[in-house]
Simulated assay, not measured.
Amino acid sequence: MKIAVTSASGQLGSAIVKELIEQIGKDNVIGIARTPENAKHLGIEIRKADYDNRQDFDKALQGIDTVLLVSGMAEPQKRIQQHRNVIEAAKSNGVKKIVYTSIVGDAEKNAFSPVVQSNRQTEKDIQNSGLDWCIGRNGIYIEPDLEYIATYIKEGEIRNCAGDGKCTYTSRAELGVAYAKMLLEEKHNGQIYNLVGEPITQTQLADYINQVYNTRLVYNPVSVEAYATERKAALGDFIGTVIAGIYEGIQSGANDIRSDYEEASGRPHKLPVEMIKAVKNN
Rank of each mutant, 00 (worst) to 15 (best):
G236W: 02
P36K: 07
Q82E: 15
K280F: 11
S92W: 00
Q23W: 00
P144L: 08
A228W: 01
D125L: 15
P36C: 05
V224A: 15
R54Y: 15
I21K: 05
V279E: 12
D125M: 07
Q117V: 12
V196N: 06
E88L: 13
I257A: 10
S129T: 09
D260I: 00
I46G: 08
G163N: 12
G63C: 00
S265T: 01
E225G: 09
L205P: 00
I158H: 09
A254H: 05
K232Y: 04
D65N: 14
M182F: 08
L61H: 03
A74C: 02
G253I: 02
K96H: 12
E123C: 02
G240H: 01
L20R: 02
R267V: 09
T168Y: 02
D27V: 03
V196T: 14
C134M: 08
G31M: 02
E45S: 10
K280N: 09
Y227A: 06
A150I: 02
L42K: 02
K40Y: 13
V273F: 05
A162S: 15
S252N: 15
V95D: 12
A244S: 13
G245I: 00
R231Y: 11
K2M: 11
C134I: 03
D256F: 06
S223T: 15
R79C: 00
D58E: 14
E263P: 00
C161R: 01
R34G: 05
G31Q: 01
I44E: 08
A8Y: 04
K181I: 02
K40I: 06
E263D: 11
G130K: 02
M182V: 13
E225P: 10
Q127L: 03
L235T: 07
H83G: 14
A90G: 12
E262G: 06
M1W: 04
T35K: 14
N194I: 07
E123K: 05
P268Q: 04
K18P: 03
R54C: 00
A33G: 11
K91Q: 15
Q81N: 12
I80L: 05
T168W: 01
G31C: 05
G245L: 04
M275G: 10
I44K: 10
G245H: 06
I3F: 10
A264H: 10
A173T: 14
E174L: 06
I200G: 03
Y141E: 13
P144V: 08
D27H: 04
Q11T: 11
E230Q: 15
S9Y: 04
T229G: 05
I250A: 13
V196Y: 00
L195A: 03
E155L: 13
T101Y: 06
G156K: 01
V196E: 10
A74F: 01
G94V: 05
R231Q: 14
K96N: 14
P114S: 12
T35Y: 10
P199L: 09
E22G: 09
I239D: 10
P268G: 08
E37Y: 04
A107W: 01
G240V: 07
